[in-house]
């Protein structure tokens, strides 16, 4: 049976490996932080774009037929009764 050979690291190699590991950890944390920030930024932008699109759609409806009753907002008081047949 062949004997396994182990590499014995010098103190300098151990120190270098620790420094590399710390650098990798910091890099990964930084990457996670970047993805988080970008996600927040894009969600915020999408939210604003969606609100603008809804407002535009409402304005278009009102211009098309001013006689139409205003649409019921989901969280307005009495919305539940109004939704019932």
């Amino acid at each position: 049976m062949s004997q396994l050979k182990y590499v014995k690291l010098t103190d300098e190699q151990v120190r270098a490996r620790k420094r590399r590991n710390v650098a990798i950890a910091l890099g990964l944390l930084g990457f996670i932080a970047l993805v988080y920030l970008v996600t927040l930024s894009r969600m915020s932008a999408n939210n604003e774009a969606r609100k603008a699109a809804e407002a535009e759609a409402l304005a278009t409806l009102e211009r098309a037929d001013p006689a139409l009753p205003p649409p019921v907002q989901p969280d307005a008081p009495g919305a539940t009764e109004a939704a019932q047949p």
Binding site: V7, L9, T10, E12, Q13, A16, R19, R20, V22, A23
Partner: peptide
């Protein structure tokens, strides 16, 4: 070499 002594600065 089997084991590297490269520092983070070397990778930079």
């Amino acid at each position: 070499p089997l084991v590297t002594s490269a520092q983070p600065e070397d990778f930079f």
